[in-house]
């Protein structure tokens, strides 16, 4: 009996991510969810700009590649055009929380019936490790070489906390993929975010704390630990909003 095998929600293309980068785990969780919900045939994924720009090569569904930060706007158009399709975006922190902040906030405010997968690894990966809107205070990056100085460049953006103030948002949860237990919880959250859409419940966003061993300058193993010790303290895991649970 097969206990675990590669989901058909992923294509056979090999991921381009660096060794140990947990983008791959998150891709798999999304793809497994699509397969388990039986919706790969009617799903439209929106790829963003950043490390996940090539996600259209991996998710085994129709895909649209959006401009930097604009995935929620493209998703809005796609979902409005095809309300019976499942529409999701897969975005990194630079894409979603810097250049695309307006699109993120307003798609939530409109309560667009879409699913947003937000990968927060506190750095710009694709361009080689620059400071992200979610880079932690004092964290060293290529563009904060002396550590993020909050007196000069300000504080990280806590996306789930921010969006939890928006009436239009339905479901917001922050999860992590740095150990097996967290990965299982992340899967549940992602599944719920898609189920919400299928049930017409509106805007769901899952923020996934992820690693970037290459640009953090750590081994894959040490990166898991760094996430645990540094990111989880600044970005506490948990459900930040669940509209339908509140109404029960």
């Amino acid at each position: 009996m097969v206990v675990f095998e590669k989901t058909k929600g992923l294509t056979d293309n090999q991921l381009h991510y660096c060794p140990g980068c947990t983008h791959g785990v998150i891709h798999r969780l999304v793809a497994e969810t699509l397969e388990e919900l039986g919706v790969t045939g009617k799903t439209i994924g929106i790829a963003s700009v950043g490390c996940s720009v090539f996600s259209y090569n991996y998710f085994n569904c129709d895909m649209i590649q959006a401009a930097h930060g604009r995935a929620p706007a493209v998703a809005t158009g796609a979902k409005r055009a095809n309300p019976d399709n499942v529409v999701f975006t897969y975005q990194g922190d630079g894409d979603l929380a810097a250049i695309g902040t307006a699109e993120t906030v307003h798609s939530a405010a409109r309560g667009e019936n879409i699913t947003v997968i937000f990968v927060n690894n506190a750095i710009y990966g694709m361009t080689g490790g620059q400071m992200a809107p979610t880079t932690l205070p004092n964290q060293v990056t290529q563009t904060s070489p002396y550590g993020r100085d909050v007196t000069v460049v300000g504080y990280p953006v806590k996306v789930c906390e921010m969006l939890s103030q928006i009436d239009g948002a339905t479901y917001l949860e922050r999860v992590a993929v740095n150990n097996v237990k967290n990965i299982r919880k992340a899967k549940q959250a992602i599944k719920k975010a898609f189920q919400n859409q299928i049930e017409g419940k509106g805007f769901s966003l899952v923020e996934v704390l992820s690693t970037c061993p290459t640009n953090w300058g750590l081994t894959p193993k040490a990166a898991l630990k760094w996430l645990d010790e540094n990111m989880e303290t600044y970005y506490p895991l948990g459900v930040y909003k669940d509209k339908y649970k509140e109404e029960k």
């Binding site: 097969v2 206990v3 992923l10 991921l15 140990g20 791959g24 785990v25 798999r28």
Partner: peptide, 16 residues
């Protein structure tokens, strides 16, 4: 299946 769950590259198949 802990290994397969953690693997970012879907390298692992687990059977029982």
């Amino acid at each position: 299946a802990f290994c397969a769950t953690m693997c970012p590259d879907t390298v692992i198949t687990v059977e029982k």
